[in-house]
Design a protein around this nucleic acid. Structure first.
Lengths: 205, 205
DNA sequence: GCAAATCTTGCGTCGAGTGCAAGTTTGGTG
DNA sequence: CACCAAACTTGCACTCGACGCAAGATTTGC
């Protein structure tokens, strides 16, 4: 990696760190791009070379998660269900982050919960998960990609994912992985039960 | 109703009509508040006396729907499940609108689908449905309001509601009510099956 | 027909976000 | 090392959404 790239990387991290501190201190709406730029020692205009919006800073690691999730789904071996792939991805993801980012995640949760714009942004993120998951589920079920069932299933699964995030906020730091898997498995049992019930009905589409 | 109120009502309707026409013509982003105000023959500043944002115009009837839905849920007789109440509300809602608003709805759907900001707004609206539904479901299940199961169920139910909207776009105008009920009933069967499956497991919360 | 409540409007302001063009830094090549 | 091209940074000007405020117009109830 050349100097140029390293520098960019470093600036990006600085922006995130500095912005998060400001958000925690003055709130998201109470912090301007100008403030962030000043703290990060860049020109306000430069900020937009790194992030397309103020919101994007808060979700700076979402793209990586999404790409990994998406790849895991697409690369799942024939016969492995989308559920199983999702479960595996989640375990990896949690294991990978556990050491470093707990505190940061918590701060983010609080910030999002307190800021409508950020909640909207998060819903948009989850919707991307839902879309890609729905497609994989549709393959599992041999159903058209835009039919009802895959979307029901994906919506519920993503709701579980979302609940997971909120959950780890409240509970006083149990073994995060185990807890998450328990929640997810409950959700998967629910989904499987729903699908089984549908299998005994004619298809309405 | 006095003159003042009638006038306000009329202006409001004018804004909606005029704005929707402009959106259809130039797109949502391609239309400014200034344009709308000019067409509606009001001052730009006055627009904000009627709507808190440009997006709010597109969803001008959401509040009424939400209030009706919410009221129907809260007023359901003891023993009536949230599902049943939701189904009843939906039937009423469709029946009530069917005559007048089909074309308008279709235009709205197209507009929303073409505009990220509006999609975000719509997700926020659906989230409000989800929240109030989740609470009602929690009562049905005798579960805490923030526990997992009600949220799974509500998320899937709202996904069905959403699918309903998108659905009526594609199909060349079948009997809208019947179609909608078929979709919703499939969703409800799915949810019921999922809950039945969970009943045979220990509760993870 | 008058006073209070309510609406409308214009003005000023802030902040997000974009396009552009000039300047600066870095990378590679001879 | 010197030089050119590519990439990055910055300042400037601009559009647009949204809000606060205060002055002016309208409606209402008495």
């Amino acid at each position: 990696m050349g100097l140029r790239e390293r520098k960019k990387q470093r600036t990006r991290e600085t922006i995130v760190r500095v912005a998060m501190d400001l958000f925690a201190e003055r709130g998201f709406e109470g912090t301007t791009i100008h403030d962030i730029a000043a703290s990060a020692e860049i020109a306000p205009r430069t900020f937009f070379g790194y992030f397309r919006s103020k919101e994007a800073v808060v979700f700076h690691d979402f793209d990586a998660a999404f790409v990994a999730f998406s790849a895991r789904l697409h690369a799942r071996p024939a016969g492995e269900t989308a559920f199983v792939a999702m479960r595996a991805w989640l375990l990896d993801w949690i294991a990978e982050r556990e050491d470093v980012l707990e505190a940061e995640d918590l701060a983010r949760r609080r910030l999002v919960a307190a800021t409508p714009t950020l909640e909207a942004h998060e819903r948009a993120n989850l919707a991307r998960f839902e879309a890609v998951l729905a497609q994989a589920v549709a393959e599992d079920l041999d159903a058209p990609a835009d039919s009802l069932r895959p979307h029901l299933v994906a919506a519920a699964a993503v709701a579980a994912l979302d609940a997971l995030g909120r959950h780890s906020e409240e509970d006083a730091r149990k073994p995060a992985g185990e807890e998450a898997v328990a929640v997810l498995d409950e959700a998967l049992a629910f989904l499987q039960g729903g699908l089984d019930a549908l299998r005994r009905r004619p298809v309405a589409q």
